[in-house]
Amino acid sequence: MSFGFFNYWVFIILLMIGLYTVMSRNNFVKKMIGLSLFQISVFLFYISMGKISGGTAPIVISGSLDTAEPIYSNPLPHVLILTAIVVGIATTALGLSLVVRIKESFGTIEEDDILEMEDGA
């Protein structure tokens, strides 16, 4: 495949590594790491999408407009992803605090052990 899609390949590979980690790991903290990776790969996707080759930062400097109009990158996806980053932080924080409560309550954060305890309960 052409090198031009490098970012998108990385995005998909990271996405799949994240998803695989979430599904295959037994430890809740490792699951959270996988989940973060999964979300962050989408940030990369949005950021790559906004880049236009040869484009510069989308800031209009007064006086430079009478010369040739520069090519700007698309700022919208970057702004969108700021929101998604905040959502990602909130998810990670909430997930980890749940892990802490689970550890306090069950004494372990291994899924298998917890399932065993739940079945016995």
Binding site: L35, L94, G95, I102, S105, F106
Partner: peptide, 12 residues
Amino acid sequence: LTAAFQYLIIGT
């Protein structure tokens, strides 16, 4: 707690 955690993973 584990139900909420499971939902958090799947929902996210």
